[in-house]
């Protein structure tokens, strides 16, 4: 049982990193992209292949995987300089489908058959315990770093850009730089999460990075509370543990299947209508309010950008 709980904790930690990165882009930046799982994939495959093919030590391979994901994000952040809102969603969807298609057809990634034989990060009888502790430390550092970023002057600049890009630009501030940076940091975190996943679970397949993963991530951020530091963290933990808890109820398959399926899609809709600030968003400042510019009390332009 301990081993099972540790595996669950590792998965939750990986999802925390993913959700925190996505929250920077979607929650704080107001940039509605669905391509976050692709950066997760880029980090996972890069890290796995660098360690397998070049013999690079796993921790270094993970860092390189995160950097490659951050650099690859320019492929999406550049179009976002010209488009926002619905158009960015479409651009990001195209980006995601394109990259997954490439992974699905390139031999070096194992193509549709998946990539196996990945080097394990830790070889020890206490492998899961060690991995869980390392992951918790990485998560803690990430959460504090994000908190520091968004509560400081740079965070206020991000909020101002999200609430009214035109006014922000008229003040002589560079929105382009902020967008590119947000995408790079958010995608880099996803890449790091990918590397951590690859070197623990030791198998990757393109199926894992489709549109369903985007929906799962969106649910974690929205249910937890977008544009807040703790919301996506707790949303990620909640939505990692909940499906496993449901499995332990041993419900009949006829009940279990629709319940699991509806969980991720239904919760987003429910929360946007009933509790737009998310479970842990607080009374003001998170979720839909933030996107609509109501958190600053300023004359933010209505509508999600």
């Amino acid at each position: 049982m301990t081993e099972f709980l540790l595996t669950l904790a590792i998965l939750a930690g990986i999802n925390v990193l993913l959700a925190c990165g996505f929250n920077l882009i979607l929650g704080y930046g107001g940039l509605v992209s669905v391509a976050q799982p692709v950066f997760y994939a880029i980090g996972a495959y890069s890290s796995a292949l660098i360690s397998m093919k070049l013999g690079v030590p796993v921790p270094l391979a993970m860092i390189l995987g995160a950097l490659i994901a951050a650099i690859a994000s320019i492929g999406l952040s550049l179009p976002s300089l010209r488009v926002s809102g619905d158009y960015l969603v479409i651009a990001s969807m195209g980006f995601q489908l394109g990259i997954v298609h490439i992974i699905n057809n390139v031999e070096i990634t194992g193509a549709a058959s998946g990539l196996s034989g990945i080097v394990s990060a830790v070889e020890s009888p206490s492998r899961s315990m060690i991995y869980a502790v390392i992951l918790m430390c990485i998560c803690a550092v990430t959460i504090f770093a994000i908190r520091w970023l968004v509560t400081g002057p740079y965070g206020r600049a991000i909020t101002a850009m999200r609430n009214d890009e035109d006014v922000f630009a008229s003040l002589g501030r560079d929105a382009v730089r902020i967008k590119v940076t947000l995408f790079a940091v958010g995608s880099g975190l996803a890449g790091l999460a990918g590397g951590l996943y690859a070197h623990y679970f030791l198998f990757l397949t393109p199926d894992q990075y489709g549109i369903f993963s985007s929906a799962t991530l969106l649910t974690m951020v929205v249910v937890g509370g977008a544009a807040t530091v703790r919301g996506p963290v707790l949303g990620a933990i909640f939505l990692t543990v909940l499906p496993e808890a449901i499995r332990f109820l041993d419900l009949p398959i006829a009940v279990m299947a629709p319940l699991q399926g509806a969980l991720f899609t239904g919760l987003v809709i429910l929360f946007l209508f009933v509790k737009p600030e998310g479970l842990f968003g607080g009374k003001a400042g998170g979720g839909l309010d933030a996107w609509q510019g109501r958190d600053t009390g300023g004359s933010g332009r209505k509508g999600v950008k």
């Binding site: 058959s113 998946g114 199926d207």
Partner: peptide
């Protein structure tokens, strides 16, 4: 199912 077999083999 081959994809699952490969994923759970480790």
């Amino acid at each position: 199912f081959s994809n699952v077999v490969k994923a759970v083999a480790p």
